[in-house]
Amino acid sequence: MYPKIDKPYGAGLLKLAETHPELVVIDADLSRACDTGDFAQKYPERYLNLGVTEANMIGVSAGLALSGKLVFSGTFACFITQRVYDQVAISVAYMQNNVKLCGIEAALTSGSNGATHQSMMDLALMRALPNMRVYDPVDAVSLNAVMHYEADHPGPAYLRGIRKSGPAILDPAAAADPCKALILREGRDATVIASGIMLERALAAVDELAKTGIEVRVVALSCLKPIDEETILRCAAETGCIVSAENHTVIGGLGSAVSEIVGEACPVPVVKVGIHDAFGEVGSAEYLAEKFRIGVPDILAAVNKAVELKKKYKN
C-alpha cells in the first residue's frame, strides 16, 4: 500500500500562502469537506466562507481575481461545475480570470451522498471551456504539484481535489510538472492511461496481467487539458493499443481526449474504462467500482480486449 498524505488540498493552500500573499481561499459552506479549516484559522483575512451561494461564489472569485488576487474556490465537484456552468464559462473562463476551481468528492468518490452529489461529467464540462486548464490528479503528490503550478500560472483552472487523505504514488521530483504524463511501468503489449483515483487500480491490474505474461505500460495522467499529446502518441505507436481509465463518464473525459488525439494522428484501438452514461447512487467505493465498472477487473478485461483488437486490426 502507498503512504497517505493528509488533507492534501488544505495543506497545499497553507504552503502556497507562505509564498503567495495574493492568495485568497473561498468556501461555500463545505469547509470541512475541503479541509480548509486550518487555512481559515491561520489566515482569516484571506479566507471567505460565502455560504450556500455557489453561483455567487464564482462571481466573487472573479471579482477578487480582477483585483489581482489568486483565488482558490472549492466545493463539491458537482456544485462547482454543472450547477454553475454559465457562471464559470462567463465570469471565469471568458474573462480569463485567475480563479482555480477545486471540485471535492468527484464522481464515485462521493459514495455516501449518492447521485445528486456525484459529478460524473465535471471534466467533460470543464474541458469544453476555452481558456480552462483541467486536472484529475492521480495522487496527493500530483495534487500538490498542480496547486503549485497553478499558483504560478495565471488563468482559469479546474482541479479535482482529494478529501481527507490521498495516496502518495508519484515521486515528487518526477511529478513536479503536472502537465507531463508519466510512464510508471514499461510494457509493449498495451498502454493503460489512468487519471485520478484510477491510477492505483491501473497499477494493481497491470501487476495481475504481468503474471499472465502480458506486459502493459502504465501512464499517469493528471492534466486533461492541455493534454500531453506527445506521450499519448508515443504510447500509441509503441504499444499499438490503449486503455483509458477514469472516474468519470466516458463521454467527454480522458477516454474521449485520448481517442481524439490518436484518431487524428496514430489510430489504434482505445478501450475506455469509465462510467457509461449513468447517474450514480450511494454505496461503498468497492460496490460502486463494481456496479459502474471502474474496478481492477474492468481494467484487466479492457486490456485483454484492447490486445485482441490490436491483433485483429493488424491482421
Binding site: 455567487n56 462571481g59 466573487v60 472573479a62 480582477l66 457562471q87
Partner: peptide, 14 residues
C-alpha cells in the same frame, strides 16, 4: 445576474 457578485469580489479585494 453575475455583475453584483463580481463587484462584491472587487470590493472585498479592495
Amino acid at each position: 445576474g453575475q455583475g453584483l457578485s463580481i463587484a462584491a469580489g472587487m470590493a472585498l479585494a479592495d
